[in-house]
């Protein structure tokens, strides 16, 4: 049964991808990308990657769709010349790449083979050590925030960079002869049903976000997904009530502070480990009992991730939305 379902989802995904590339209406392309992300998330779920599925759904189908739509409102809705003159060269380059990949997969171990080298070396150690040294149920969270916490620190700073990048680009005063339709005006205020349903949804999304934030050690979730969900609920609020209301609730300066403080909280936990006699990002020294210390460290850094992600996503949204008002 899973086979049929898997093949079905994968095929649907391929069809969606091709449709995305073929359509000339950018609005349709963005909507289809949202659907593509949901399909991808379902595939991840089938492949036992619950955390990744949750993230892909929140990011790909939620946040990135909102960002694309904001950008579309400021730029164009259709593409004019669909293909460049070198489409044959492009096709050749792409085909060679794909053939190489397929060639490489000939010798690859069968998918799901428990004896494959990939499952023999590092992974069992993670499963074992999560139980012994950190003692939380979600191994993905343990690897993400402790064993490979340095990667996650980097990830937070990637988000941070993107946030300051968009603010830097769109804070520039000057020529604004762009959009015809503005995000500021695309409000749902005049539509009764979306507004009512939306209003009812907001508290639940927010609550779910908080649940995901603090439940990351036990089930799928964590700071990043939570940040995306919380940001989504506030963006929904902005769409329903107008961006000004949302900005009154969470002013720009506060968002900037959120972005910086989340990143600093994460880094600070790392430095604290250093000051208390461990290495950078060593949470074991944070409490007298190393296991408790690990758990404390994970809660703190996940909070840092959540704060920065919420701040960045909201700032980026507002930066796009404000650009449209002139």
């Amino acid at each position: 049964m899973t086979i049929v379902f898997g093949v079905f989802l994968l095929t649907l995904m391929l069809i969606t991808a091709i449709a995305i590339v073929r359509t000339q209406n950018l609005f349709v392309a963005v909507m289809l990308s949202g659907i593509f992300s949901l399909l991808l998330a379902s595939n991840f779920f089938l492949l036992d990657a619950a955390d990744v599925a949750l993230t892909e759904a929140a990011v790909g189908a939620g946040i990135s769709t909102v960002l694309y739509l904001s950008a579309l409102a400021l730029s164009a809705e259709n593409e004019r010349a669909p293909y460049s003159s070198h489409r044959l060269i492009a096709l050749a380059v792409v085909s060679v790449t794909a053939l190489l990949v397929i060639y490489a997969t000939f010798d690859q171990p069968r998918v799901g083979d428990p004896a494959a080298p990939v499952h023999q070396h590092v992974a069992p150690w993670y499963l074992e050590m999560t139980r012994d040294a950190i003692d939380i149920p979600n191994v993905v969270t343990a690897v993400l925030s402790s064993f490979r916490g340095y990667d996650t620190l980097g990830e937070v700073f990637v988000v941070f960079t993107a946030g300051i990048g968009v603010l830097f680009l769109l804070d520039k005063p000057g020529a604004r002869h762009g959009g015809t339709q503005t995000v500021g005006r695309v409000r749902l205020r005049h539509y009764l049903i979306p507004r009512l349903v939306g209003r009812m949804l907001i508290p639940f999304i927010l609550l779910f976000g908080l649940y995901v934030q603090f439940h990351g050690e036990y089930g799928p979730g964590g700071g990043f997904q939570a940040g995306a969900l919380i940001a989504a609920s506030i963006i929904l609020y902005a769409l329903l009530e107008g961006e000004t209301r949302a900005l009154q609730a969470l002013p720009r300066r506060l968002l900037t502070l959120l972005i910086a403080s989340g990143a600093l909280l994460y880094g600070g936990v790392g430095v604290a480990g250093m000051l208390l006699g461990g290495n950078f990002l060593d949470y074991s020294v944070l409490a007298s009992d190393p296991v408790k210390g690990q758990q404390l460290g994970i809660i703190l850094i996940e909070a840092g991730v959540g704060i920065t992600v919420t701040g960045v996503l909201l700032s980026v949204f507002h930066a796009f939305a404000a650009r449209g008002r002139f």
């Binding site: 590092v122 064993f147 490979r148 916490g149 340095y150 290495n279 990002l281 949470y283």
Partner: peptide, 13 residues
């Protein structure tokens, strides 16, 4: 050499 988070290589970074 430096072990991030004091986890032994190759498990930690």
């Amino acid at each position: 050499r430096y072990l991030m988070g004091s986890w032994p290589a190759p498990f930690g970074i």
